[in-house]
Amino acid sequence: MATRPTFSEEVANLMHSSHGNPLNTCIQCGTCSGTCPVAEFMDHTPRCLIGLINANQKEDVLDSNTYWFCASCFHCTVRCPSEIDISGLMYSLKRYSIWKHHYSDDAIGPVFSETFVKSILRSGRSYEPVLAPSYIFSYGVREFLNEAHTATNLMLKGRIPVIPPKLKRIENFKKMADRIIPMGGAK
């Protein structure tokens, strides 16, 4: 009889291409949490999150803000005594949460990531002004003003491009992306 994969098996599948040991080799030593520079902002530390995955606590894991706070600094990965690729795990959970559309409304990460990817598929290069609307409206008034002030200064220093960059062979580029994820040329 066919059985459904458990949540920890699902996560293992998501990490198929990551280059570390399986999560069930975690000895809960806490080196990752002690290393992580953003642990104080996370509702679950990396160690705790891995414990929850191994215990199949799917809802708790997906509801957690931990993986969207991960800055991909790879410090935990290089220090884990069990050689688990914890940063790779955080990437996997980000993808899973975007795929399942399971994230809290105030998370900026998912929308920003998707906007970023779409903008690159359109032009081939990133262009800061296109990205701003994906996060700027979630800021409070003071942050918004600070950000606007910073942007103005950057503009004055000539550090923000006025014209969006674009590839010469953009049509080939889109066809290339289409062979990986068919999107009708990423419109």
Partner: peptide, 25 residues
């Protein structure tokens, strides 16, 4: 000539294979 964005860290949040493809170009 005509290089494209490497996807930064953000691209890997969405799709790994596509991220590798961009870099491979």
């Amino acid at each position: 000539e005509d290089w494209n964005c490497c996807g930064a860290t953000t691209y890997f949040h969405v799709d790994e294979l596509l991220a590798y493809t961009l870099v491979a170009r």
